[in-house]
Amino acid sequence: MDRALPDLFPGFESRLAETEQGSIFYRTGGSGPALLLLHGYPQSHVIWHKIAPELAEHFTLVMPDLPGYGQSAVPPLSADHAAYSKRVMARTMASLMESLGHTQFRTVGHDRGGRVVYRMALDLPERILGAAVLDILPTYDYWNKLDREFALKIYHWAFLAQPAPLPDNMIAADPITFLEHKLASWSAAKDLSAYSDGALEHTRAWFQDPKRIAATCEDYRAGAHIDYLHDAEDRQSGKTIQPPLLALWGTQGIAGSVEDPLAVWRDWCPHVKGKPITSGHFLPEEAPEETCIEIKNFFAL
């Protein structure tokens, strides 16, 4: 699939790494301290293509496709959704980094990738030198906030989390219409103007695969069940994020729907820093320059 698609990362290497969740596709390049970049739904590592060249001047970038997304392996679905839990994904991503010689690293995650990032910071704090999350609040808080207004904004959380194969089959009946609606409706412009033609071509290619549609639904089923329980355990025990944490959100994004996103994150990480960026949900593509500046400044050595 990759060979027939536009090269959005000239000068970067494309590789496969074997992990407990199967083969993980990733791109890597640059020089300096290791920086792991994790995408969200309904995208792949391609979300980073606008900011990767600048970041690569300061960091050694590792940009994987999460399990079930893009060109990575599709773990089997299960009754407990464990393979798609952010705890297992976090372990897989940390294992990937260790296999590349990065026992400690910095990491940035957008959307679902941000949930892997904060779970990694909670479960493996000794590995994380700093973490940034883009346009999310913790899974626990999203589910507990689902009043009428917020439920309408993130209706896909309940829809995608329905038992298989209901949402899987409904999306597979017309995947490109669903994909493009999500990309447009979550952007500030409410259209596809923020996304390059090449990025859309990459995303359309893998999002038509029924196995990957099912996998991405399973990601949300994990969020509604096992991920929520993991978060609840940490809240009840008072466990907090120890590594430095940056939270950025779009002024017209999803996390900004609450009155004070940073106050929510302080319950999880008292030393968190953060700010809004003029953008919709997809900061690296809608506001690449400002997003890149904030990441570089936060991780400044």
Rank of each mutant, 00 (worst) to 15 (best):
S95W: 06
F150H: 09
I213F: 14
V62G: 06
A172K: 08
R27T: 01
L8Q: 15
G253N: 08
A73L: 03
L38M: 12
L77M: 11
G22I: 03
F298D: 01
L122G: 10
A17W: 02
E259M: 13
P64M: 04
G223K: 06
S78D: 01
L96G: 10
R266S: 10
W186T: 11
P6S: 11
I47Q: 14
A56E: 07
P76A: 09
H49C: 11
M63Q: 14
C269H: 14
E233C: 10
V88I: 14
D80R: 05
P67S: 07
L129P: 01
D260I: 12
Y41A: 09
V88M: 09
A300W: 03
E233A: 15
L166F: 08
K145S: 13
F159M: 12
L38S: 09
L16S: 12
G109F: 01
L36G: 07
T251F: 04
L100Q: 14
M97P: 00
R112C: 08
W143A: 09
L134M: 12
S44I: 13
M89L: 15
L77Q: 00
G274C: 12
T240C: 10
A215G: 13
A224N: 05
N144H: 15
D168F: 01
L246M: 06
L36Y: 07
E285V: 11
E218R: 00
T216F: 08
D219P: 02
P167D: 07
E290M: 12
I154Q: 02
P10G: 09
E18Q: 13
G11D: 02
G70K: 04
A184R: 11
D209C: 11
A151F: 08
P261G: 13
A188N: 06
T107P: 04
P53R: 09
A188Q: 13
D234V: 00
K296E: 05
D123K: 06
A199E: 15
I295K: 00
C269V: 09
E289N: 13
L229V: 09
E294M: 03
E259A: 15
P6C: 08
A215I: 05
V46S: 05
D260Y: 13
N144G: 15
A82M: 14
N144A: 14
A172Y: 03
P165G: 00
K275A: 14
T92A: 10
F150A: 07
L152R: 11
A4D: 14
A4T: 15
L166T: 06
L152V: 04
W48H: 08
A121K: 01
D227S: 05
L5S: 05
V272L: 11
V133T: 04
A287C: 05
D168A: 04
R221V: 01
H39T: 05
Y195N: 08
G30W: 07
F178P: 01
W157L: 01
L152C: 06
P10Y: 09
E285P: 04
F178L: 05
H81R: 08
S99H: 04
T103C: 12
H110Q: 13
L192C: 11
F12W: 10
L160Y: 12
L146T: 02
H225L: 11
F282Q: 06
A205M: 09
E180F: 03
L122R: 10
